[in-house]
Design a protein around this nucleic acid. Structure first.
Lengths: 340, 340
DNA sequence: CTGAAAGCGCTTACAG
DNA sequence: CTGAAAGCGCTTACAG
């Protein structure tokens, strides 16, 4: 089970020309006579010749491939960002190799090494939930390979990145809750180790402070991004002596789990408890009630990240760039009307 | 911006030994003296030598990499199946290159060609919504490359595959609806071109026939797997002169859109209208009401597909295998109690 | 225990 | 317009 593949040499032998001629003809080089070309093309087609990209990469020292590392490809944000990446990269003839860490630091390192060893032309990466130490990323940079970080890489110094203003987004979300009359606002932050969650927490605290509401650490809760979706965390909070009257959730999935927990308690949304999510995932507007959330321009972030990659690829001494994209509050039914 | 990478030659020159010795020492060959090895390892470490996988692949004619092609990586089914794939493949030291077609036939072909030209050791693939013609898959087989199809590849002849019994799963879903007293059962099938949807439709018709209910083609509707999630299709059906009293949806996402449409009409689930989905996606149990659905063993399907790949890789004249995995009806709140 | 040579499949200066 | 030669970074029979 391994029919030998046809190579340039095979074609050369058959046509009694040199491999160089075959190679040039296949590239449609002006140096080769029309008739020779035609004969070569015909045979190549007939024999179903396909160039071996591995050999081409070795010689060209380029792969026209970029590695993409995300925690989980099924997260809506990542999937959408990848589409933005593809939108730019495919047009330029680049392929992407998508790798997922499943939030494992170890796998993130392995993927970086694999991609570098595979001689990709660059790496575009988020950061796993476990990652504390960034040397695997700096290795890439030191090897002179283009790299851009996005989303969770927002606070890694000396690396180009595309991000949102997480503090501000958190502030806006919580300010909306306050504006609609909520007083005891819980924050379901997701994994404690994620700087992105801590940045939004800063925004949460800022909004609280601006409204003169004191911060209660019991109202911040951590959970994994698992399939439980914050359901049990929200439930626990609801059973506190002084339960929250609103939840700010780190993403819409967790918002969904929170809504289920609220319903299970027999409470109404938003009359009894308000909920705000993050991301504006496609189902947010189909939930019952429809979920208020913060929209993040994931597709556009992907496009910008791809552009940064090209900038680095094509520039001799590229600057380190930081691009901050805007977020937007989308008010729907899971929060109340604004109180004057 | 391209510090030259250190190669075996560089190490050889520095240590005044031959490249062969370096290569062997790095592989910890018994042929090399301990001291020589030690010196080589040290320098390799000090200089941060990393083997060039591209060169290794060219010479070994193996890549320890398998290509995975899915329509959309964000579909829960695909994401979970990929985890099953990883579960087996990573243990054996294989990496996966994940490619998405976004339901485009053209991209599916491009991915197949890219993966083959990149000399992956095998391809594990679903099928895009547009694909009618399978020659790109047969090319892979003819090239002697291991290949296994899954899910939507269930009806492609002469290829190894892992699948579920879509007809039976459809029959079970619809029979449950009938058992709970539903009479006018709609089927939201998704893209018309997908054989998987047609197979489930056969099951739908079978269940109808078994119960002596006549088939009404007006109750079958097609839609894209877009972000609308079947919302508008369901809405249209609800506005028919004789609206359905139940919906069988090709997946839970579409089930979600359907539920939203039903709510918008002011109807109750399941009292007025029952809904059953497919896949048991993680949020199904968090919806309001909780969604009844058909569970598909996506993770296990991935494991089986990976095992089939290894079987082909390691066997001289591998048989063509078909593995059918069981599905399971998960009864929750979006369908009524069983009527006697 | 170590090295020289050939080669994986391709490309591209250098000649002619 | 075409070819011979060298080389991308590595591995591995073949010698010694």
């Amino acid at each position: 089970m391994k029919p030998k593949r046809v190579t340039i040499k095979d074609l050369a032998k058959e046509l009694k020309v040199s491999p160089s001629t075959i190679s040039r003809a296949l590239q449609d080089s002006y140096q080769i006579g029309e008739e020779t070309k035609k004969a070569i093309w015909e045979l190549a087609k007939k024999w179903n010749y396909k160039p071996n990209l591995v050999a081409k990469r070795l010689i060209k020292q380029k792969s026209f491939t970029v590695g993409v590392i995300v925690p989980e490809v099924s997260y809506y944000f990542n999937a959408t960002l990848i589409k933005g990446l593809e939108d730019i990269l495919l047009k330029e003839g680049f392929n992407l190799i998508i790798c997922q860490t499943h939030e494992s630091y170890e796998r993130e390192i392995l993927h970086c090494e694999f991609l570098m060893a595979s001689q990709v032309d660059g790496i575009i990466s988020s950061i796993s939930g476990e990652t504390q130490q960034m040397s695997h990323f700096y290795n890439i940079l030191e090897a002179g390979m283009p790299m851009v970080l996005f989303d969770r890489g927002f606070n890694v110094p000396n690396v180009s990145k595309v991000m949102i203003d997480n503090v501000e987004a958190g502030r806006v979300a919580v300010a909306h809750l306050i504006d609609t009359g909520c007083k005891r606002i819980a924050y379901l932050q997701g994994p404690e180790s994620l700087p992105i969650g801590n940045a939004r927490k800063k925004g949460y605290q800022k909004a609280l402070a601006e409204a003169g509401v004191s911060f209660d650490r019991k109202l911040v809760s951590h959970c994994k991004f698992g399939s439980d979706m914050g359901f049990s965390n929200a439930k626990k909070m609801l059973e506190m002596p002084e339960p929250p009257d609103a939840f700010f959730c780190i993403n819409d999935r967790i918002g969904m789990g929170t809504m289920a927990a609220i319903r299970e308690k027999g409470l109404r949304i938003p009359e009894d408890i308000s909920v705000i999510g993050f991301n504006d995932e496609p189902y947010a507007k189909l939930l019952n009630p429809k979920l208020t959330t913060i929209e993040q321009p994931a597709f556009q972030m992907g496009q910008e990240a791809a552009k940064m990659f090209f900038y680095q690829l094509k520039t001799d001494e590229p600057e380190i760039l930081t691009k901050i994209l805007p977020t937007k509050l989308i008010i729907r039914e899971s929060t109340k009307g604004i109180v004057n």
